[in-house]
Design a protein around this nucleic acid. Structure first.
Length: 697
DNA sequence: CCTCTGCAGAGAGGA
């Protein structure tokens, strides 16, 4: 077939689709609420009532439905601690447990209720909410405000070294080699530059851990006899009444590294450091389990936070395989490993915490009941008032800021009286105009994200079969892998897919689109993410973050277009930074919030290196007069320049010319710089010169 | 009718 005929055929098909849209299917695909029963059941709560029993105990009764028509009603009874779940009519919930004669019972001993299950919350977030729910919600909101420290960098490097070693060798020489190789990776060098550390310092820190790596491997891997490994205390629920907790744990091999799992069952997501195959020897019996192994490079705290992470990972693991029932917590500084059983009690309490977090994150805004009330941001979970915790909290600034600017805790009658001095101290550098600005833009950004969230959600991937999703044009199912996987680099693998039978369906997917790859099987859900590289009538080529060649050749896949979730994280992070007590932020507040007039240098000659003039002139040649004027203005700018123009008037072209000329300046200047001391020999980036000329279009 | 708009993100440790 000639290429042109191809195109004509495709267009005919496209128009045919447009002429006769399968109305009822489109309706389903676009429905905001997808209800249903089964593993991923989704119930709509119709009514909530508190019931007092004769024995004085309380229950919460929910009338729920899993049918789109709301015709089939079921009852869900919450008992004990579950009564406190902040569930309201209109909410979507997921239920785990048993349902007999249309009645669910969620109590201390059985069942779980997951509030807004399609909101996936990370394991670390939930673990951190144990100490302070407010902090956990704040760091979900102001994501980028946690500055990376030296310990974090070392931690990241050590994780990678261990992860490479477990699939290779713990031989001391090999470890040295892996350490050196890891320290030299570009992304780590960038962080080192930012932290003003050099390679040797980092390498030295990393090397201190390596003997413990080998010790751990000697203790737990490649054993001749089970008794060679240290004895541990661990009893699994499936061992029943067997109270013999003593066992030997032998790690057979690493099955996956940084396995990323989304769990629409439990409303969780996370990345498992190492997924290991483990033999548990108890007396003469041996059990094989696939478990999460969590690495920690910090203090050997064996804390609830660390242990909770593993409990949550056992829940995540159930999306892919049998319940691990336990996880392993390994402290790399000593090589000591702790087994962590996933008891019902812990899972229950953690899922209740997840529900509280989900509630806070979902109800960010109070909708006015009448037209008179204002739309406002809701208060966050309460300040905990624990000096010791608050002193070291990375969200302390945002916590105080939100309290003062949004919750307006300024008088002595408010609930957070004990924290008033701290709140005042953390925010005293801010004027009323700054607080108002923060509050206003928090609200605006939250409203914006809310309005976009409601339209679409990745939930269609798990709630909608690919055959149905395909009709919307944002999904292709029934794909098989063809040709070899080409490894572009670590974390980038080029895959080819074709329809198992026949040609590709008509689709919106285009080269450059972000996609989520899943197996058609439920257990292979959201295996990998990546981009479409190329798509034609027969084949789709994708760049994925995982190598799928480990799966059987016959595995059927589906590709779903990743929903563009609007990125309010960046502006919210910037908003938080704008309020910081630093000179740079002070200057920006001055300019942006208090409208100080931007300043300009009078003459170009005072800032442009002599020999850069020709190059800049040649760049200017391609621009028209207003563009040149705009460009000159930016080069003279001490603060910022605002370039405004009608669409198509060439704002982008001007900016390209600017970047190009600033880059020239960089080359010119750095060539003339005197050699600096070693510790100070950082690459000069164009941003050094760029940062005085913020450009907004 | 146009343009736009942003794109990774969970976890790295501290106490």
């Amino acid at each position: 077939m000639e290429p042109l005929e191809d195109l004509e055929l495709l267009m005919e098909e496209t128009f045919a689709e447009e002429a006769e849209p399968p109305a009822e299917l489109f309706q389903k695909v676009d429905a905001t609420i997808v209800l249903g029963r089964g593993v991923d059941n989704r119930y709509l709560v119709l009514a909530v009532s508190a019931v007092q029993k004769e024995d004085g105990s309380h229950e919460k009764h929910l009338v729920i439905t899993a049918s789109q028509s709301r015709a089939c009603k079921e009852l869900c009874i919450l008992r004990n601690g579950w009564c406190s779940v902040p569930v309201e009519p209109g909410d979507i919930i997921h239920l785990e447990g048993d349902c007999t004669s249309d009645t669910w019972i969620i109590d201390e001993d059985s069942g779980y209720l997951i509030l807004y299950p399609d909101m996936l919350i990370s394991g670390t977030s939930i673990a951190s909410s144990i100490r302070c729910l407010r902090r956990a919600v704040l760091s979900e909101t102001f994501r980028s405000s946690d500055p990376v420290t030296r310990q974090m960098l070392i931690g990241t490097v050590l994780h990678e070294v261990f992860q490479k070693a477990i699939s290779d060798s713990f031989d001391p020489e090999k470890l040295q080699e892996l350490a050196l190789q890891t320290v030299q990776e570009i992304r780590h060098l960038k962080e080192m530059y930012r932290l003003n550390l050099n390679q040797d310092e980092v390498k030295q820190d990393v090397e201190e851990y390596l003997p413990s790596f080998s010790k751990w491997a000697g203790d737990f891997m490649h054993k001749h006899s089970p008794a060679d490994s240290p004895q541990m205390q661990l009893s699994l629920p499936s061992d029943g009444g067997n109270n013999n907790a003593a066992c030997n744990i032998e790690v057979i091999k690493a099955l996956d590294i940084e396995e990323s799992i989304w769990s629409p069952r439990f409303g969780l997501k996370g990345k498992i450091d190492v997924t290991v195959g483990v033999k548990i020897h108890r007396g003469c019996r041996t059990k094989y389990k696939v478990m999460p192994l969590e690495l920690k490079t910090g203090k050997e705290s064996n804390s609830i936070e660390h242990r909770s992470q593993l409990v949550l990972y056992t829940l995540l693991s159930q999306e892919r395989r049998a319940d691990p029932e336990a996880g392993l917590l390994l402290y790399l500084r000593t090589g000591r490993m702790y087994p962590v059983p996933a008891r019902r009690l812990d899972k229950r309490e953690l899922l209740k915490l997840r529900n509280q977090m989900a509630f806070s994150l979902f109800h960010r805004i109070s909708k006015p009941a009448t037209g008179k009330e204002k739309t406002e941001l809701n208060p966050l979970p309460q300040v905990i008032e624990e000096q010791q915790t608050c002193k070291y909290c990375s969200q302390a600034g945002n916590c105080a800021l939100y309290s003062r600017a949004v919750e307006q805790h300024t008088d002595d009658r408010s609930a957070a009286r004990g924290t008033l001095p701290r709140i005042k101290e953390e925010t005293q550098h801010l004027k009323a105009t700054h607080l108002e600005y923060f509050s206003l833009w928090c609200l605006m950004l939250t409203l914006e994200s809310k309005s976009k969230d409601n339209k679409k959600n990745n939930q269609n991937i798990w709630l909608m079969p690919s055959s149905e999703m395909e009709r919307s044009g944002n999904c292709i199912g029934n794909l098989i892998r063809t040709e070899h996987v080409k490894t572009v680099c670590d974390g980038e693998y080029l895959h080819n897919f074709q329809r198992r039978n026949g040609a590709m369906p008509v689709t919106n997917l285009m080269a450059g689109d972000r996609i989520i790859l899943s197996g058609e099987e439920r257990t292979l859900f959201a295996l990998s993410r990546g981009y479409v590289r190329e798509i034609n009538v027969t084949t789709i080529t994708c760049l994925l973050d995982r190598n799928l060649s480990v799966l059987p050749e016959s595995t059927l896949f589906r590709l779903d277009q990743e929903e563009k979730n609007c990125d309010i994280d960046t502006p919210l992070g910037n908003l938080s930074k704008l309020m910081k007590n630093t000179d740079a932020s002070q200057k920006l507040r001055d300019l942006i919030i208090d409208f100080r007039e931007p300043q300009f240098i009078p003459y170009l000659s005072s800032i442009l290196p002599h020999d850069a003039k020709d190059t800049v002139a040649s760049i200017l040649k391609g621009l028209n007069k207003p563009q040149r004027q705009a460009m000159k203005k930016v080069l003279l700018s001490k603060d910022y320049t605002l370039i405004v123009g009608m669409p198509g008037t060439g704002k982008t072209t001007t900016i390209c010319a600017l970047v190009s000329s600033l880059l020239r300046r960089y080359i010119q200047i750095s060539r003339n710089l005197p050699r600096r001391k070693f510790a100070d020999r950082r690459p000069l980036s164009p941003w050094h010169f760029w940062k005085n000329s913020t450009i907004v279009t």
